[in-house]
């Protein structure tokens, strides 16, 4: 199974939201990483046939998804960034309604609804109206509806937004437990979610794909570039403005900065193993100054 994005561009007036995006996604879990305004949601909406690209096309197994229409959507599960719902429906009613729109037979819809509510930890809340659920609980209903029908292509836009740490761990478990025969694309700002779950990470900046790499390879590229630097508090600001700074801790009168720099930035700097936040800052933070 292959989802191909061929030279996709999207313009909103004079604004180029996506430029020449070329991707080929086979089975596996892909993380889509980029700052706000990078074009992640635009790309996902084009991939789910909700938005027409200005140029280019998206193909699933060689067929254009726009031409496939309902057949493509039968194989699709989508969680949008702002998950909308019918406030007066209970969680169970909403899932059953969407299951009907996904053409699931009634008995199968009931079975999957119960199973997915159990999976996302909301079985006890199935009779509660959507408007009465918390933001995190509604988001979990959103994840459940995306999984209805066991889709081949799963597109999740900021799926862990509003989830507490325990719920995020549960979500990672759900994603990891999915069949390897699926294409899963999830976008997030929470880089640690990608490190744990994604096989490959797509880096998107200002509408352009910077690269597609495994998390391990992205981190390996930063080896020898991450430093912890203890400095007097009055020097903190100057150092932080000169280098990319991924973390600051204060201990007494000292500041301990975590900096990203090609060369040792300070005499007392100690090399550290890079993490995903360092990687995010390296690709998307302000440019390093000499």
């Amino acid at each position: 199974m292959k989802l191909e994005i061929e030279k996709v561009c999207k313009r909103y007036g004079d604004v180029l939201a996506l430029a020449d995006v070329d991707l080929s996604l086979g089975s596996g879990i892909y993380g889509l990483l980029g700052p706000n305004g990078a074009g992640k949601t635009t790309l996902m909406r084009i991939m789910t046939d909700l938005l027409k690209p200005s140029e280019g096309r998206v193909l699933l197994d060689g067929q254009e998804i726009a031409a496939m229409g309902a057949e493509f959507r039968r194989r699709l599960g989508y969680l949008p960034q702002d998950f909308g719902y019918y406030p007066g429906f209970t969680a169970e009613q909403f899932l059953l309604y969407l299951a009907g729109l996904k053409r699931l037979p009634r008995a199968e819809a009931k079975r999957q609804t119960a199973e997915l509510l159990e999976t996302v930890g909301l079985y006890d809340k199935r009779g509660q109206k959507m408007k009465g659920l918390s933001g995190g609980q509604r988001q979990r209903v959103g994840i459940a509806q995306a999984l209805l029908g066991d889709p081949d292509v799963l597109v999740l836009d900021e799926p862990t937004a509003g989830l507490d740490p325990e719920e995020r761990i549960r979500f990672r478990g759900i994603i990891s437990g999915l069949s390897r025969q699926k294409i899963v694309l999830l976008s997030t700002h929470i880089v640690s979610d990608l490190e744990a779950a994604a096989n490959e990470i797509i880096l998107l900046k200002k509408g352009r794909v910077l690269g597609v790499r495994r998390p391990h390879d992205l981190l390996a590229g930063l080896e020898g570039m991450v430093w912890t630097v203890p400095v007097p508090a009055e020097e903190e600001k100057e150092l932080a403005s000169r280098y990319l700074c991924s973390n600051v801790m204060h201990d007494g009168g000292m500041s301990i900065l975590r900096l990203i720099a090609k060369e040792k930035p300070y005499p007392d700097a100690a090399a550290e193993r890079p993490n995903m936040e360092d990687m995010y800052l390296f690709y998307f933070g302000k440019q390093e100054r000499t």
Partner: peptide, 22 residues
């Protein structure tokens, strides 16, 4: 109008029956 007013359009419209049929 309920889909537009509740923001449910992307969820509903990404289903096989959620556009013309619905």
């Amino acid at each position: 109008s309920v889909d537009y007013e509740t923001g449910a359009v992307p969820v509903v419209a990404s289903t096989p029956l959620g556009r013309r049929s619905l």
